[in-house]
Amino acid sequence: MSRLSQQVVTLKIDGRDVGARSNETILEVAHENDINIPSLCSVEGLSVVGSCRLCLVEVRGTSELVSACSTYVREGMDIVTHSERLSHYRQTILSLFFSERNHLCAVCVSNNHCELQGQAQALGLSHVEVAYRYPQLPVDASHERFVIDHNRCILCTRCVRVCDEIERAHTWDVAGRGVQALVITDLNEPWGSSETCTSCGKCVQVCPTGALFEKGKAVAEMSRRRRFLPYLAKTKEKSS
């Protein structure tokens, strides 16, 4: 398939001519060229899910929007990453994220380190138009080192993927569906009693919000280390 043969292609992103390999995604090529496309679910080194929809971009000549993280570049593509329409969509999507659960930044361990908050600032989201749903969700602090607060979870599934793809423990998964969906450990048991969790902490490091955090952190103290990921992903590729 063409994807494996890695041809060199040229394309336009926001009017700029850029070169790329055909097995790269629009998001990767944009980042190489210092063009910022917002995104919450994608993490370098993990599989692509295309679920946050923030990285949608316009491709001139087609009417549909495509997610930059999951679309491979093609010769001659003409991509628009920022437009009034896109920014309106992105703001509304962020509003939907904020309305879904309880994101009270002022009392959150991740305040000022949160990617959701960061995107809201970057995209100039001033207020949330839709009604807050405020579900009452549990906080599980049974693990000796970590806590999961479902009220801050945006279901990006980074934790599920890192645990399965890198740590190979597959402690996490998503249960239920639709707005009822929740991330769970094992058979929806307390995290602390999980038989599969190795307490490696990778899930905590990749979490974009204050949903997963280390015990003992106070408000605004939870920053993340995640440079290790691409490296681990590479070693995994080599060994398999």
Binding site: D173, A175, G176, R177, T196
Partner: peptide, 12 residues
């Protein structure tokens, strides 16, 4: 099959 995956499928 991991436990959490089974739970995920069963509740989907």
């Amino acid at each position: 099959v991991p436990l959490s995956q089974i739970y995920g499928v069963a509740t989907f």
